[in-house]
Design a protein around this nucleic acid. Structure first.
Length: 596
RNA sequence: GGCCCGGUAGUUCAGUUGGUUAGAACGCUAGCCUGUCACGCUAGAGGCCGAGGGUUCGAGUCCCUUCCGGGUCGCCA
């Protein structure tokens, strides 16, 4: 059989044919979506990435052709030469865009046969993700997956268009780089040339982009692959893509301005949606106290309220004790849930917050004439009335309280707020609420390491008015860092960097590095900063998450062509895998696995 | 590393207090069928019940171990 497709030159994509093509002779190529064999008449739905078109084979009109058509099965790859014809009114299929026309086949060439696929190539299939990932190349044929990857391509293109137009330069940085302390666990790559030494794959191009600023490339971006060896989640996997941006001679408002215009541009291009600029800004402190989260979902209310002042003199030891220990008591009014939720459901909420460190969840159901609650007996009428007043409680409401250290209270109520939002159906998919969170703490205390660690990263600039606290009250220092949040998901974050080597040394000292350690780890950066560093700052977006949200998906695996599963393996290739002993010997590596 | 859920035909699932030969739907194969588009009709094939061990006269079902998948906590500057 002649395998060459020389005599077939594709003229049209299946999904792009329409009434304007009627009577045209066309050649299309693609996969057999479905065959409907009526005996003397065979219909084929032919699929390419543009869509589906119906091809009809008539036994009377072309016998040779017809014998071939009878052999067709799902996912065979074919080339078809034929004529586009208008369908008679009673045979129109309004369900597909090409349903007003069909192709009458004159010639058929089977380019490739196919085994029966493990699942149908169509949207809304009922099949486990594991099977989809094992046969990812088939899964990616599904229209939804193709749309997702096309969307991803478009988002990248729009970002590049925008940034190029603003005068940014796209510059690549190394994948094989140096392990630096702080941050996530590194992926290491052994060096053959330097036995016992390792490269690290970049967690982000952070240091390189700062050095590029020093080198005078004052507007840089890169769509960069990053690696972090930490456990996976629905919105996280070990290799991911970052849109990395850095600018010189700018302050915080310049960077936020460019970035929000860029995101607005993407929304305009994608959904023809106008985002109102500037985006709302909220300080970290306010975000935590109102939403219990540094990435608040502002599509719904259910905000937190501090009621410590009201309950501090009550007889309820759980509340008063928490306050005495420096914590707080905060509450959410779950409006209407007093009547909506059963006692069992309320108990479920109690269990829910325990997952996030709260020791308990106190509740009050507000009814017309009384309050139903295990805790009202600890309060006098005045205190109860003040609570109802503060929480704007009305009949039918459910008041939920957590008392503990502030970070526990925020975490528990923040997560509870989201859970309530989900249960009450308040998360409106048609809304895109974008905002900035600013004034993050520069440090956070690590119980594990018994020292302060950088909340953002060690090169983040402190706010000018807080620099004085750097040595003695690091917990008070706020940073020039900012996150962009979309519907409760952090899609990007950045900061103004330290460009002064003295301040950088003070910062590293505050993080517990002495001068030798600091120079050992970051010497190249500290040295570079002695040669004239411009003020600079930037931003980095999680592209996977951003595209996931735009695609309306709930896992980044739906917008990554070949993703990894929870144990960081690839079900299709089987990576990671053992390697030959010879490879290890070249790298001077011996495997020593305990308890296997 | 902890906790929760799941693993039975190619796929998605059902499978009673432990009891004949483990079922359904879709898919697949063959035949018939000239206007289907989730084509239809008829017939048929297809199973190491994730793996290993245990309890029992008897295990898909109960117990233990383990592997695999999902979610989540820790972790993720």
């Amino acid at each position: 059989m002649d395998q060459s497709i020389k005599k077939f030159k594709r003229t049209h994509m299946c999904g792009q044919l329409d009434q304007e093509d009627i009577n045209k002779d066309v050649i299309v190529m693609g996969w057999v979506q479905r065959r409907r064999d009526l005996g003397g008449l065979i219909f084929i739905d032919l699929r390419d990435r543009a869509g589906i078109v119906q091809v009809v084979f008539d036994a009377k009109k072309c016998e040779k052709n017809f014998d071939e058509a009878e052999k067709l099965r799902n996912e065979y790859v074919v080339a078809i030469k034929g004529q586009v014809v208008e369908r008679t009114p009673e045979t129109v299929n309004p369900k597909i865009p090409t349903g007003y026309i069909e192709i009458v086949a004159h010639e058929l060439m089977i380019l490739s046969t196919s085994k029966t696929p493990p699942f149908m190539i169509e949207d809304d299939i009922k099949v486990s993700e594991a099977i989809r990932l094992k046969y990812r190349y088939l899964d990616l044929r599904r229209p939804k997956m193709q749309q997702n990857l096309i969307l991803r391509h478009n988002v990248c293109k729009w970002i590049r268009d925008f940034l190029n137009n603003e005068g940014f330069l796209e510059i690549e940085t190394p994948m094989l780089t140096r392990s630096t302390p702080e941050g996530a666990r590194d992926y290491l790559v052994p060096s053959r040339v330097h036995p016992g030494s390792f490269y690290a794959l970049p967690q982000s191009p952070q240091l390189f982009k700062q050095l590029l600023m020093l080198s005078g490339y004052d507007k840089y971006y890169q769509i960069a692959r990053c690696f972090r060896d930490e456990d996976l989640r629905a919105d996280r996997q070990p290799e991911f893509t970052q849109v990395d941006i850095e600018m010189s001679f700018v302050d915080i408002d310049d960077i936020m301005g460019v970035n929000e215009r860029m995101i607005a541009y993407v929304f305009k291009k994608n959904l023809n949606m106008d985002i109102t600029l500037p985006l709302p800004r909220i300080s970290y402190k306010e975000a935590m106290s109102r939403y219990g989260s540094d990435k608040p979902d502002t599509r719904f209310g259910l905000e937190l309220n501090d009621v410590s002042d009201i309950v501090k003199n009550s007889d309820f030891k759980v509340f008063t004790g928490a306050i005495e220990r420096g914590g707080s008591v905060r509450a959410i009014n779950a409006e209407g849930c007093g009547t909506k939720f059963s006692r069992r459901e309320i108990d479920g909420l109690v269990d829910y917050v325990k997952d996030f460190g709260a020791k308990g969840l106190a509740w009050i159901v507000v009814e017309d004439s009384e309050l139903k609650s295990p805790i009202t007996k600890f309060f006098n009428d005045e205190q109860l009335n003040m609570l109802l007043d503060r929480l704007e409680a009305k009949s039918g409401d459910l008041l939920l309280f957590v008392a503990d250290k502030d970070d526990v209270v925020f975490r528990a109520l923040g997560e509870l707020r989201l859970e309530l939002g989900r249960r009450l159906g308040l998360l409106d998919d048609s809304k895109y609420n974008l905002l900035w969170v600013t004034e993050f703490p520069l440090f956070e205390y690590s119980e594990e390491e018994k020292r302060y660690v950088a909340k953002h990263h060690p090169f983040t600039a402190p706010m000018d008015e807080d620099i004085k606290y750097l040595e003695n009250s690091p917990e008070k220092v706020r940073s020039k860092a900012y996150d962009m949040v979309l519907n409760g998901v952090e899609i990007g974050g950045g900061s103004i960097r330290i460009h002064d080597s003295n301040l950088q040394e003070r910062m590293l000292k505050a993080l517990g590095f002495n001068k030798e350690e600091a120079w050992d780890r970051f010497g190249f950066l500290l040295q570079a900063f002695q040669y004239g560093a411009p003020p600079h700052g930037g931003m980095a977006y999680g592209l996977d998450r951003f595209v996931m949200l735009l695609a309306g998906e709930s896992s980044i695996r739906e917008v990554i062509a070949f993703p990894k599963v929870q144990n960081a393996s690839d079900l299709m290739t089987g990576a990671p895998s053992p390697v030959d002993l010879k490879q290890l010997e070249e790298l001077n590596i011996k495997i020593d696995i305990n308890d296997v």
